[in-house]
Design a protein around this nucleic acid. Structure first.
Length: 578
DNA sequence: GGTTGACGCGCG
DNA sequence: AAAGCGCGCGTCAACC
């Protein structure tokens, strides 16, 4: 591994708080402590920056070990200091705890479970505790940091594939760095443009409900013969539909879409507008966009599969309708890249399915499947693949899945085996070794009831249903989770490539970004299989090339020489809109 | 009065 | 025609 890589076996420096206050940095090597330095919070950024600079100019590089990137990194970023690598003890603990059953000490360290943010009862308890909570299991306490690191070091060799697990821990930690950096940088957001879109779609706001919404609501009330109907209340709307002779079971749009009635078209349009208004309307702008930046909170590892979640601002649900408002600063560009059919590509590689990899190579995977003759059209190929990964059993999708089983037995064998394992209560793993959760109480209870003597057929039916539910989850887990690992590897590599770009002149800096990012191309947004880079105009082409090279590197890192490619749909534009 | 769950819908 | 995975959020209505 080269020294500049996210995966490098770098020198480790652990950071923690001393009992008396202040921050202690411990330089570690294989034998243990090699040096120690006490710092104030104010001294920390400059000291970290020096160690980073030394590491990048000749040393092996530094991997910072800390309790949680979400706590330690933002202040460094605010001070303009970026780090290349870290080991996030909290995130790595969660992975190792579930993936390495033999790591008994680590599993017993339950105070490392959870986010570390105390809920209200725990806060109250801590407040009245006789013993200082700063000593009792405080994850930032230096001794606790070193002890937990030792537990994790001991757990790693016990993983079923330590080499891959080591990559996963590095990737997860790099993701945490990326998430903090992206929040500091912010998503460049043109509030004026956003307001224009809102007015175009919803109509002018004259005090109350925007004009077009009000008009549509009036049309619905008229058509249903209910002049005071509150459209935003599903129960009341349902009653009004029934009163008008429209006998639907719910007010969801897929059910309404089938109905032929003059109220339906304006109702569906109203719902569409209402959604935009409530989720990403003027109130959202006021709350989440300041000084030209949208700053969502990403939650690395927030999904069991390893995908990120978000908290606040709905970063992972930005409607495509608003992508045009995601707009580069003057003199800057948006480099937008997404991977075509990431999950089935990952599946082909995991299963070492050469035929599926052939179908995917150099083109649209769904087209490739159609061209191979397994299905007739691209649309059928897509249906079949999604059904295979999600566990469809009925409908068009379920009907097509058996064709894939014939054409791609290795890939289908992998997801089918994951589903069987899940149904039976087993756990499954991603490619790098993140494991699915153990069966929950509902699963265990249902199986127990169904297997005891005298179980009713209802018990058995319920147990089968819950078993199949879990099978669909584990089927998808291996693919979704491995795709998330690929994406983490992509970003981990990309952020370091971009960090090497030269700084542009200060007056060309993106003025509203966090200082650490203001002067060169940087990641600005991530959504499962796509990234946006905000780049000075003259760096946009190089950034695009870095995005491509990182994607290729991620594929090699995970899957070695297996011939699967990950083609990108890549655009350089003023906005994120296609 | 504040919390909780269901619903509906946005994203991948 | 929503069959089949994973999320977050706003709303309403039921609940304590």
């Amino acid at each position: 591994m080269d020294e500049g890589s996210p995966w490098a076996d770098a020198e480790r420096i652990a950071l923690g708080r001393a009992p008396g206050g202040g921050i202690v940095a411990i330089v570690l090597d294989r034998a243990g402590e090699r040096g120690r330095r006490t710092l104030t919070a104010a001294e920390l950024p400059a000291w970290v920056a020096e160690r980073e600079a030394e590491g990048s100019t000749g040393g092996r590089g530094v991997r910072w070990v800390w309790s949680s990137t979400a706590d330690w990194y933002p202040p460094l970023l605010d001070a303009g200091v970026r780090v290349a690598r870290c080991h996030d003890l909290r995130l790595c603990h969660a992975i190792l705890r579930d993936a390495v059953p033999a790591a008994l000490e680590l599993r017993a360290a339950t105070h490392w479970d959870g986010t570390g943010v105390l809920d209200a009862p725990a806060q109250a308890e801590a407040l009245f505790a006789v013993e200082s909570p700063a000593v009792a299991g405080d994850r930032d306490d230096l001794r606790e940091v070193l002890v937990e690191l030792a537990r994790q070091d001991a757990a790693l060799p016990l993983a079923s594939d330590p080499g891959r697990m080591r990559l996963l821990l590095a990737a997860e930690s790099a993701g945490a760095l990326t998430a903090a950096e992206m929040r500091t940088a912010g998503v460049p957001w043109d509030a004026q443009h956003h307001r224009r879109i809102l007015e175009d779609v919803l109509g002018p706001r004259r005090g109350g409900v925007p004009e077009y919404m009000a008009r549509l609501a009036g049309e619905v009330r008229e058509a249903l013969g209910d002049p005071v109907l509150a459209l935003d209340s599903p129960p009341r709307l349902l009653r009004a539909l029934h009163a008008a002779g429209i006998l639907v079971d719910s007010t969801s749009k897929w059910e309404l879409r089938q109905i032929d009635h003059p109220a339906i078209a304006p109702l569906l349009e109203y719902k569409r507008l209402s959604r935009l208004m409530t989720a990403n309307g003027w109130a959202w702008l006021d709350e989440w966009v300041h000084e030209g930046r949208f700053r969502p909170v990403y939650v690395p590892g927030g999904v069991v599969s390893g995908r990120w979640a978000s908290s606040g601002g709905g970063a992972l649900q930005l409607p495509r309708q608003l992508r045009e408002a995601l707009r580069a600063d003057p003199g800057w560009r948006i480099v937008a890249a997404d991977v075509a059919q990431l999950e089935p590509r990952v599946l082909a590689a995991m299963a070492r399915d050469d035929r599926l990899a052939d179908a995917a190579r150099g083109r649209d995977l769904y087209e490739g499947i159609a061209a191979s003759g397994a299905v007739a059209t691209r649309a059928e190929g897509k249906m079949a693949v999604l059904g295979a990964m999600y566990g469809a059993t009925t409908g068009d999708s379920g009907r097509l899945v058996p064709r894939l089983r014939t054409a791609y037995p290795k890939a289908m064998g992998l997801v089918d085996a994951a589903a069987r394992s899940g149904e039976d209560g087993g756990v499954v793993s991603t490619w790098l070794g993140r494991t699915s959760p153990a069966p929950d109480d509902a699963w265990r209870g249902a199986q127990a009831r169904a297997s005891r003597p005298g179980a009713s057929s209802a018990d058995e039916t319920r147990a089968r249903r819950i078993g199949r539910d879990r099978g669909r989850f584990t089927r998808n887990f291996v693919v979704q989770g491995t795709a998330a690992e690929w994406a983490l590897a992509w970003m981990a590599d990309l952020r370091l490539r971009l960090a090497q770009f030269p700084a542009v002149e200060p007056d060309r800096a993106a003025p509203r970004s966090g200082r650490a990012f203001a002067r060169r191309a940087h990641l600005a947004f991530f959504l499962h299989d796509e990234v946006l880079v905000h780049a000075p105009e003259e760096q946009a082409e190089a950034a695009a090339q870095a995005v491509r090279e990182s994607a290729a590197a991620a594929g090699r890192l995970l899957f070695g020489s297996f011939p699967i490619d990950f083609p990108l749909d890549l655009r350089i534009a003023d906005s994120a809109d296609k």
